[in-house]
Write a protein that binds this DNA or RNA. Sequence first.
DNA 1: GTGGTCTAGACCACC
DNA 2: GTGGTCTAGACCACG
Lengths: 123, 123, 123, 123
Amino acid sequence: MEWKLRTDRAVYLQIVDYIRKQIVSGEIGSGDKLLSVRELSGVLNVNPNTVQRAYAELERMGLVDTMRNIGREVTGDMDLIKKSREELAKEYTSEYLLNMLAMGFTKEEILMSIQKMEELKNA
Amino acid sequence: MEWKLRTDRAVYLQIVDYIRKQIVSGEIGSGDKLLSVRELSGVLNVNPNTVQRAYAELERMGLVDTMRNIGREVTGDMDLIKKSREELAKEYTSEYLLNMLAMGFTKEEILMSIQKMEELKNA
Amino acid sequence: MEWKLRTDRAVYLQIVDYIRKQIVSGEIGSGDKLLSVRELSGVLNVNPNTVQRAYAELERMGLVDTMRNIGREVTGDMDLIKKSREELAKEYTSEYLLNMLAMGFTKEEILMSIQKMEELKNA
Amino acid sequence: MEWKLRTDRAVYLQIVDYIRKQIVSGEIGSGDKLLSVRELSGVLNVNPNTVQRAYAELERMGLVDTMRNIGREVTGDMDLIKKSREELAKEYTSEYLLNMLAMGFTKEEILMSIQKMEELKNA
DNA sequence: GTGGTCTAGACCACC
DNA sequence: GTGGTCTAGACCACG
């Protein structure tokens, strides 16, 4: 998954989104260890404090468990992961549709513009 | 169009998005006057300076013309408006698809989840 | 003389400059009547109040005399006009040189760039 | 370079001019760090917001790069700097000549008055 | 410490 | 009334 830093949104929230998508997609499975704060901060080229904050947020959501002195791993609560995936999908879809409808696109136009996008060419 | 303030994005950028959608959708047409800085700041309940900044940004984009001491109006450049609409739609669609694909949804699932959304019920 | 409204300088000051140049150049001679406030505001397409303010400033400088109920005319004080012309030229030249020197141009480069300007082609 | 506040031009634009001249003259070279917003606001004795606005404008021009949480530096795009220098010089020269010609000075008089200016004595 | 944003409130030029 | 600018001071995200 690509990582592209934006300037119009808090970096730690962008990291939360980034990890969360990896978890709900199964790219990182239940019980898998997450990168350490230092490792991830190196990979993403951000300050360790920022990664720390993102991890704290993911723990609060229940998607990540911390094992003292050992590391962090993805929760074993498959139901929570599945529920998160559906919620996220609904949020993204809802926001997208509201934006497109607000710009005056019709249902058909929206479906068409999705069909035509390159991103779906090999999906 | 509804107005809901978020906390994870600069307010002036949210105002830019808000007005821009109204312009590209035709909700505000070419030549129509925009609310004055003071009026809009009252409506949105934000500081006039914040609205001023958003308007300056829209002006920089060319979507808004400023008539000093008189007010602001939507540009008469229909081509620019049309172009903006298409660009915006492409951006929204691309970002949406990337998010959904990153979460492991397939093309069919994405199209299905759109079909099922309530937002499209009366569109 | 051309008239081009800027937005980064008070309009009434631009009008003052505009008239003053016409006076010191002799384009409007001693004793000549100035356009009325209404006429000039029509020509320049600005509010009469703004022209009024510019004229007041020119009177303060002594370049313009007001004859009650008759109109305004250029002062008969030729010395003042001549002095104004020299002062203005010195100011313009000084400011120009300071700007060019600040940008790192040498005396020769400055003289050269003036020689090459089209504005001087038919002067 | 001297700093003298005028009252007939927006302060933030004066700051833009001030910094821009330092950049195109090479007084501040590519990659050099600019004073922080707070530092410069202290030096110039203006509000930090005013400096912020000026810096944002320079960034928009491409002359300055912002490294968030670190500082700002002069762009490494030497071509842009060179182009800016030439454009600025042309603008200043053109405006100067138009003013002098409007006051009735001839080409020779203009060149003479430049030669005589003290500013060029040690240039 | 850095830059980014926002509020509150003021004054100006102009219509 | 309009837009444009500025000050004063605050909080945030980030390093």
